[in-house]
Every structure is written in structure tokens, then in C-alpha cells.
Design a protein around this nucleic acid. Sequence first.
DNA 1: AAACGCTCCAACCGCACAGGG
DNA 2: CCCCTGTGCGGTTGGAGCGTT
Length: 355
Amino acid sequence: MGRAPCCDKGNVKKGPWSPEEDGKLKAYIEEHGTGGNWIALPQKIGLKRCGKSCRLRWLNYLRPDIKRGGFSEEEDQIICSLYISIGSRWSIIAAQLPGRTDNDVKNYWNTRLKKKLFGKRRDSCSRQSSRLSINHDPKEETNGMSPDASSQALSTSALERMQLHKQLQGLYDPFSFYNNPALWPKFHPLGGEKLFFHIQHTDANTIAATPVPQASDATMIEPSGQNVFLIKPEMLNPTDPSIQEDPNSSTLAFPSPSSSGALSVENSNSNFNDAAVGLQDELHDLLYQKIGCSRGPEQQQQTEFDCYKDLNGEKESMNWWATDGFEKSLSGSWDSVSNLQADLLNEYDEFGYRL
DNA sequence: AAACGCTCCAACCGCACAGGG
DNA sequence: CCCCTGTGCGGTTGGAGCGTT
């Protein structure tokens, strides 16, 4: 036995709202508020509408603070960033965008942003790396599962997030989304605290980023050592010819900034900031088509580097959601990142993927 | 000009959760 | 506790509008 419907389905009007209905609803709520009971509200004002429908109409359309018009680049980036980190929690994402509703954000993501991101990168990278796309050669991508089974087994959201996640960061990359404060929204739903870091060389090969207690932020700083992470110089500025790559130090250690909140990098190292800005550009580029096959040969090469760099240049291991590659990608990542990863891994597990 | 296809968005649906009795 | 009900949320759908053939 299912639960009783919230209203008499046969006796309520459906479909688009008329101006008269809008007027009644708006006038009543502006004068009396919702009265704490949406179900009873339509009867009170003589509307043949379901209470849920009234609520939706008010929240998504009639509310006075609704923001109309296109989304800004900043809003795009916030939506993408949050989608990657928390998935399709549209109400939370919308809460970071004043005047936007969850429905707006959801529609905008489904109709535009998703295409912008996946479409562009698919186009731009597909000739270089068909494996990056969930739409390309699924047999190879899914450890032999049939394309249908594999594409249905994982939720679209999870696949999208993994794909974006992978596109926007190498998990060994200190300037990944999770490690890159520049990509994080001001009010990160998973935290929101700020951590400040000093960047300094510790030896020829490494740079230590150590948290700096600031007056208002001191309480957020973990005990010494917890928040120190080591960065290879070439990661800070990969184009600097004076930097020598050490093949023996390909694994980077990133003890977690376990407070997992928003991270602010103090302006103490211009290379660090350059790199952070570079990653922000990467998200921006995904959204606004500044990279990809439209670039010249050198830039295409750089794009390819972006696609493969976290796998140490081994294109054959780019089968990143197959057992081997994905597991390799996950090892050594820090725990706030692993919130998402655990999510994704759970989804993998649920559907019989064993990593 | 008509047919067709695509995009976008408002609205609906069903489920999960929270809180009160 | 358990049940019931209202609320909130995410996924999906229907159709208007627009562009293309």
C-alpha cells in the first residue's frame, strides 16, 4: 500500500500557472506568509492547485529575490566546482548562488554546463584520448563489461563527477581542485574555514607549504605537521627549464589539511600562486573553450599533457576507471579528497566493481 | 512555408526525511 | 518507539520556442 497522495489528484489543476493564480499566491504569501502549511494554503486562497505545486511556484518563480538572466562565469565555476565535490545536491549548490534556485541550477547544469564541459573536452581530447570519455569505446573502459551494463551500472552523476574530477586534476597534483584554493567557492559546504600557508624550499627537490596561524583562523589549524604538504618544484612551474625532474620522486606526499575547508594560500610564493591560477584557468578553459583542438600544435601538446600527466605519461594506463589505473590514482590521496573518492568507490562497490 | 529536430525550462512525480502526536 | 503528515529534494517530462532543412 503506497502512501496517500498529498492532495486530491482529480481535483487539482496542473500545468502552467495563469497570471491570476500567480497574483493570488503572491499576494497572499506577501501578506500572510506561507502559514507554515503549504498543503492547506491553496484552499485558503481558493486555488485549485496542489500545495506542493504552490510551494514550487513560489520558490522557483514568484519569490521576490529570484535572479533572472544568464549565469555568470563565476557562477559557472562555482556550480562545476561544487558538482565535482558534492554531486547533484542542487539545493546546496543553489544556496551558494544568491537568487538562483535549485531548479535553475539543475536545469542549467543539465542543459548547458554539462555539454560545455563534457562536450568540449570530449571533442578536444577525443582524438588524443578517446578513453577519457564515458562515451568512447566502453568495452575498454569497463573491464570487459558490456557497454550497456557498464553504462547503466554506475550512476550518471558518479561517472560525470569522476570524469570531471579526472579532467580537472591529477590526484598527485597539488594544484588539483581539492588542493587548489582558487577553485573553491567562498562558502564551501564541506567546511568553509580558511587555512593559510607559507611556502618555502626545504631542499633542492621539495617545497614545504606550512600553515600559518592567522588571528581569526588560528583555531582551524591542525597540530604542526598535519597540514604540511610537499610540492615538487616542477609542479609549481612545469615550464621552467631550470627545474629538473627527479624520476625517483614521482610520488608526492600530501598529508591532509584534514579540516577540509576552503584553503587560502598566502601570497608568499609567486610560483605557487601562478600554478593555482593555472588550475583555475583549466576549469575556466573547460567551460569557455580556451583549450582543445582549436589550439596550435604546442597547445595541443599541453592539452595532452593535461590529460595524461597524472599517469606518468603512460597512455596505456589511461584506462582510469579500470581496476589498475583507478586504484593507482587513488593511492596516496589525502583524506578530504577521499570523501568524494569514498563516495565513488562505494558506488563502484554497490555495482560489483572490485578495485 | 511546412516539417522536423533540438534546446530549454517550468512543472510534475515520487521518494526520503523530520517532527509532532 | 511507531505512525502519520508536511516538507524538501532530485530526477524526469512535456511543451513552447527556435533553428535548420
